[in-house]
Computed example of a mutant assay.
Amino acid sequence: MLLDRQTFLVKERAELMRLTDRYDIFDPETGEPIGFAEEKISGFAKLLRLVISKQLIPTTIVVQEDEASEPVITIKRGLTLLRSKVDVIDKNQTPVGFFKSKLFSLGGGFTVHNAAGEQIANVQGNWKGWDFKLLDMSGQELGRVNKKWAGAIKEIFTSADNYMISLSDEVGSNPGLAALLLAAGLAIDIVFKEANT
């Protein structure tokens, strides 16, 4: 099962002139595909992206074990003005939690909240690039998100990113938290990094 794992290699599909994002999720040790994530937006929203920054337009990312299976988690971002709010919903359409972007953050970051609205973690970015820590409220590390280099041609001519999401042992025994933190890794790309593309 996708959410029983502690490490995920996420590869954004490189596509020129794309209006939606797609991601393949692999087992980093075997290279075996273990999941798939795809942005699902209306045709009208796609057209709006031609004239308005995609960061301002609502989006939904569906995470599945493969392209034909039911969603494992769904990530939804509503209309964004100053701060983004990203909701995470499980396969039963039950809220798992949400993220809120920080208004002022040097390296990028956001807060992680459970379904009851309580803040349970922070995502802190490193100003040098794709290096994010997932920290609980006492500062203990729950996981990391690090960029994997995709090669010069891909990096120069596309906005596709490859990154590793690694969760701590404690997270592995809690599927709800694992779902929230896997979603947090994907939300880094949705909320922050795609703003520049």
Results as ranks from 00 to 15, higher is better:
residue 74 T to I: 12
residue 168 S to E: 08
residue 142 L to G: 02
residue 150 A to Q: 10
residue 141 E to F: 01
residue 50 L to F: 07
residue 110 F to S: 07
residue 56 L to S: 06
residue 191 V to S: 07
residue 184 A to G: 08
residue 152 A to D: 04
residue 104 F to P: 02
residue 87 D to A: 11
residue 24 D to P: 00
residue 7 T to P: 00
residue 166 S to P: 00
residue 67 E to L: 08
residue 61 I to V: 15
residue 45 A to G: 00
residue 105 S to T: 15
residue 85 K to E: 15
residue 75 I to Q: 01
residue 1 M to N: 11
residue 129 G to P: 03
residue 107 G to M: 12
residue 10 V to I: 15
residue 177 L to D: 04
residue 49 R to P: 01
residue 40 K to V: 15
residue 89 I to W: 05
residue 195 A to I: 10
residue 97 G to K: 03
residue 35 G to E: 09
residue 154 K to N: 12
residue 95 P to L: 11
residue 147 K to T: 08
residue 32 E to A: 14
residue 142 L to C: 02
residue 51 V to T: 11
residue 28 P to E: 10
residue 160 A to L: 09
residue 151 G to C: 09
residue 72 V to S: 03
residue 50 L to R: 10
residue 1 M to T: 15
residue 5 R to E: 11
residue 181 L to V: 06
residue 95 P to V: 10
residue 123 V to D: 03
residue 132 F to G: 02
residue 159 S to V: 13
residue 107 G to N: 10
residue 52 I to C: 00
residue 157 F to D: 08
residue 167 L to H: 06
residue 15 E to A: 14
residue 125 G to A: 09
residue 31 G to Y: 08
residue 102 K to F: 08
residue 118 E to I: 12
residue 20 T to Y: 03
residue 121 A to F: 06
residue 176 G to W: 01
residue 179 A to W: 02
residue 172 G to Q: 09
residue 6 Q to E: 13
residue 15 E to R: 14
residue 174 N to W: 04
residue 17 M to G: 01
residue 35 G to H: 07
residue 40 K to E: 14
residue 172 G to V: 09
residue 195 A to Q: 13
residue 197 T to D: 12
residue 17 M to W: 12
residue 125 G to Q: 07
residue 142 L to R: 04
residue 77 R to G: 08
residue 156 I to P: 00
residue 119 Q to Y: 04
residue 149 W to E: 11
residue 54 K to A: 14
residue 48 L to R: 06
residue 56 L to A: 13
residue 75 I to C: 02
residue 131 D to F: 12
residue 168 S to C: 08
residue 124 Q to I: 15
residue 37 A to Y: 04
residue 28 P to D: 09
residue 119 Q to I: 14
residue 48 L to E: 06
residue 182 L to C: 05
residue 50 L to S: 03
residue 71 P to T: 07
residue 59 T to N: 07
residue 48 L to N: 01
residue 107 G to Q: 11
residue 31 G to W: 09
residue 3 L to A: 04
residue 75 I to A: 03
residue 5 R to K: 15
residue 158 T to A: 06
residue 36 F to R: 08
residue 34 I to P: 00
residue 108 G to V: 14
residue 177 L to M: 14
residue 33 P to T: 13
residue 156 I to Q: 05
residue 16 L to Q: 07
residue 88 V to D: 03
residue 126 N to E: 13
residue 1 M to E: 14
residue 15 E to W: 07
residue 7 T to W: 00
residue 4 D to P: 00
residue 197 T to H: 05
residue 76 K to I: 11
residue 119 Q to E: 15
residue 158 T to P: 00
residue 106 L to W: 13
residue 13 R to S: 13
residue 64 Q to L: 13
residue 79 L to N: 04
residue 9 L to A: 12
residue 161 D to T: 14
residue 2 L to C: 06
residue 88 V to F: 01
residue 25 I to E: 04
residue 168 S to H: 05
residue 166 S to L: 07
residue 170 E to Y: 03
residue 190 I to Y: 00
